[in-house]
């Protein structure tokens, strides 16, 4: 299992989501991807998208000024 970090800080919706999706395409099932985002909309939207398409939202952490969203590829 690998963990990759995407630094989407400074990018606006849907930039961080699109970067996550590109990374998911390359990841193996079970890999985790951490998305760093300073965009509050993305911090809300990314977990909703993850749940919709069937991956796992491991958790979101408020880092003060930005969020860390951890995703596990489930399929």
């Amino acid at each position: 299992m690998a963990t990759t970090t995407i630094d989407g800080r400074g990018s606006f919706c849907p930039g961080p989501l699109m970067e996550l999706i590109a990374a998911l395409k390359l990841a193996a099932v079970g890999d985790e991807i951490e998305v760093l985002s300073s965009d509050k909309g993305s911090a809300n939207d990314i977990p909703a998208w993850i749940n919709k398409v069937g991956h796992t939202h491991v958790g979101t952490t408020d880092k003060g000024g930005y969020w860390s969203i951890l995703v596990k590829k489930a399929k």
Binding site: F12, M18, I21
Partner: peptide, 17 residues
């Protein structure tokens, strides 16, 4: 000014992904 994702690149990403 806020470096919003490029509009045409968004369309391209939608096509690619």
């Amino acid at each position: 000014a806020n470096k919003v994702p490029d509009t045409l690149e968004l369309f391209q990403m939608g096509k690619d992904l």
